Amino acid sequence: MSKLKNAVSHHDAELAELRADRQVAVEYLKAAMESLDDPNDRAAGLLALRTVAEAYGGLGAVAHEAGISREALYRALSPKGNPTLKTLLAVLKTVGLRLSVESEKHAHA
């Protein structure tokens, strides 16, 4: 099997796209964060936040600026992670985003 010249991994292409267009990063994260409501699919939201953190500075730099250890950030944003609200807010702030609340589409009036 030969390697393609100038091939870019999916992950690297994803990071480049998120870096290039902030609105894409916001919509990507908003869609993934909806998975946090489902206990069986929480990993998608955490991994999306990890990917955005990688795109906007790298995990080491984001952890440093957020005031947490790199190892703690890796654990918090892993598929089985369970970050505190403080960690989520710190990471979001570091990448230039903030937590927001909106009404559920099927919420009772």
Rank of each mutant, 00 (worst) to 15 (best):
E54K: 15
R19K: 13
V95N: 02
A44S: 13
A61V: 12
G96L: 05
A66Y: 01
G45F: 03
L89V: 06
A13E: 07
V52P: 03
S35Q: 07
E54M: 14
A107R: 15
V26W: 09
A32Q: 08
V91A: 04
R75N: 05
K30M: 11
K30D: 13
A61G: 06
N40T: 10
P39I: 09
V91Q: 00
E27P: 00
L36A: 11
Y56E: 07
V91R: 06
E14T: 15
A31W: 02
D21A: 08
A76L: 02
A76N: 08
L36Q: 11
T84E: 08
T84R: 13
Q23S: 15
L59Y: 04
Y28F: 15
D37P: 00
S100I: 09
K86M: 05
A107E: 14
A90W: 09
L4G: 14
A90N: 03
L97A: 08
A109L: 09
K86Q: 11
L88Q: 01
N82S: 14
Y28C: 07
E17Y: 06
H10C: 00
H64K: 14
R70Y: 12
L99Q: 12
L88M: 14
H108C: 01
A20D: 05
L18S: 02
A107S: 13
V95F: 07
A48M: 13
K3F: 07
L49Q: 07
L88H: 02
D12M: 09
E27V: 07
E14Y: 02
N40E: 14
A31F: 09
A66P: 04
A16P: 01
K30S: 09
S9G: 14
K3P: 00
E27N: 11
T94K: 02
G96H: 03
S2T: 11
A43D: 15
A7W: 05
A44P: 00
L85F: 09
L89T: 10
L18M: 09
D21F: 11
H106V: 04
A44N: 11
S78P: 05
T87P: 00
G58A: 06
K5A: 14
Y74N: 13
D41S: 06
